[in-house]
Amino acid sequence: MENSIKKISSFRDFIYLYIDGFKNLTWGKPLWIIILLKLFIMFAILKVFFFPNFLNSRFDTNEEKSEYVSKELTKTHIY
């Protein structure tokens, strides 16, 4: 059986491995839909609208960030 199937011998064949694989998905199809939906929700919605990087969104330089964190950490009466 193995001999009747064209084996991968080049980078092009390797790319076709992916293309054929995706074209012939059976049980994997819903999984890829879930993966793509999940990545979209995570990166296009959650990351953008709900999880901005706190320091990057407020300060431009590392000096500003370290000064801010230094101020935060040296205010000792937290409660």
């Binding site: 059986m1 193995e2 199937i5 084996k7 491995l17 992916y18 054929d20 694989g21």
Partner: peptide, 8 residues
């Protein structure tokens, strides 16, 4: 997952 029968 895609390589059964396509690689050794």
């Amino acid at each position: 997952f895609f390589g059964w029968d396509k690689v050794s």
